[in-house]
């Protein structure tokens, strides 16, 4: 269990983020919560690419080693899987974009309402 401390950290981070997203009234804090949730998922995913800790075993790793057919044939030596890291990189780019748009929307909302309190910004009902 202690060997999977990074998964536990991811779960703790996720809970913190969800708490901030749901409970905090401030829009900026909600966004920070969203970012923490995303970070926790990225942490989990990168950890899952790691051979020592990961759920990813070399069962399929053998078929993944494209540049080294010899290794693929042997299928023995485990290696850190680069693909989750590459995917997480793209996901980070996406979260940067979402955060940028969300912050600009928050700026505009502040301009309209003069506050960032989500309890006061509630014109949509029903």
């Amino acid at each position: 269990m202690i060997a999977r401390f990074d998964y536990i950290a991811a779960v703790i981070l996720f809970s913190i983020g969800l708490y901030a997203l749901v409970v905090k009234p401030n829009l900026i804090k909600k966004l920070i919560g969203l970012n923490i949730i995303e970070t926790s998922v990225y942490l989990f995913l990168i950890a899952s690419g790691d051979v020592r800790l990961g759920i990813y075993t070399n069962q399929w790793a053998a078929s993944n080693v494209i540049d080294n057919p010899q290794r693929a044939v042997q299928g023995l030596e485990p290696m850190i899987n680069p693909i989750p890291s590459a995917l997480v990189l793209t996901a980070i780019v996406v979260s940067v974009c979402v955060t940028a748009i969300a912050l600009s929307v928050v700026v505009k909302l502040y301009q309209h309402y003069g506050t960032l309190d989500a309890r006061e910004i509630a014109s949509l009902k029903g």
Partner: peptide, 28 residues
């Protein structure tokens, strides 16, 4: 529209992050 966009964005980002999770689990 700004308020709706904020809600849409937060919910959409949560949905997307679950999809990334699903994709990487499928990959694993």
């Amino acid at each position: 529209s700004l308020e709706a966009a904020f809600k849409y964005m937060v919910v959409g980002a949560l949905g997307s992050i679950l999809l990334v999770f699903g994709i990487v689990l499928l990959f694993s």
